[in-house]
């Protein structure tokens, strides 16, 4: 054991918990505790403390968010600024998220794939084209979703300049997800708000088409219409990533997701 109390214990004391006997005999720990208590007071007196408290309380009072008519509706409540130019975070090994369950931490490495030597911030990470949905409440990647879950779309372009992202439901209906205008590919180098969505019940597949020149939505629809029925279900086989008529230089990534009704 350490000769001093950890901050976990100190925080418990600062939050009004029992004071361990060690504190009576350890000057260093008493000094640390005084520092943390003084810091806590300073934070409480600061301008942001009351503002954030009001927001948290208003969240409790807010009615549950209603899903929209479509199976995947745009979620406009949280304007997170991120640039799709660098939406290149890659997945780590799967595990379980610690936030809402005690089993263990969530599935991905926060910055990059284990083993990569790439710098982290504002840098492109090389890798094959990929598309993922990250569930905001726990950071799970491509999880089994529940109606009402809020998700962020994440793209890895594999170095391509343009992307067009669409969703296809089990009825083969294709809806553009990104860029917001949706008629043709958007340039990944341009700063864009991170696309956030709220899902409604029903299975769907998100397709991302990466290219060096913009692709038209109608063209992509034609390509997707050639998909076999088994490619509209999760899990998808690698063969489903082969689209008839796609020219060289266009990369296709897809992820199939299921959305359950909320119990």
């Amino acid at each position: 054991m350490s000769e001093h109390l950890s901050d976990l214990v100190m925080d418990e004391v600062v939050a009004g918990g029992m004071s361990p006997p060690h504190l009576d005999s350890c000057v260093a720990c008493r000094e640390r505790l005084a520092l943390l208590e003084s810091h806590a007071e300073k934070v409480r007196a600061g301008p942001h403390f009351a503002r954030v408290r009001a927001r948290v309380l208003s969240e409790r009072a807010a009615p549950p968010r209603k899903p929209g008519g479509a199976w995947l509706t745009r979620w406009l409540l949280v304007p997170v600024l991120a640039t799709l130019a660098t939406v290149v975070v890659v997945r780590g090994a799967r595990a379980v998220d610690p936030v809402t369950s005690p089993e263990g931490p969530s599935p991905e490495a926060p910055f990059a794939h284990p083993g990569t030597q790439e710098p982290l911030l504002g840098m492109r990470i090389k890798g094959p084209p990929q598309v993922e949905l990250l569930r905001l409440k726990d950071g799970e990647i491509n999880p089994l979703l529940q109606e009402g879950d809020e998700v962020a779309l994440r793209l890895r372009s594999g170095g391509h300049r343009y992307a067009l992202v669409v969703a296809m439901d089990s009825g083969k209906e294709v809806e553009a997800l990104w860029p917001p205008e949706g008629r043709q590919s958007g340039e990944l180098a341009a700063a864009q708000p991170a696309p956030l969505f709220q899902v409604t019940q029903g299975d769907f597949v998100v397709h991302a088409l990466y290219s060096e020149t913009p692709l038209r939505l109608d063209t992509v629809r034609d390509w997707l219409s050639t998909l076999k029925p088994e490619c509209r279900a999760a899990p998808m086989s690698a063969a489903c990533l082969s689209l008839a008529g796609v020219p060289p230089g266009v990369a296709h990534a897809a992820v199939a997701l299921q959305v359950e009704a909320r119990p």
Binding site: T83, T86, E108, P110, F111, A194
Partner: peptide, 10 residues
């Protein structure tokens, strides 16, 4: 998670 998201920004 926020640090991971921040990796999308500079």
């Amino acid at each position: 998670n926020m640090l991971r998201t921040r990796a999308l920004r500079d």
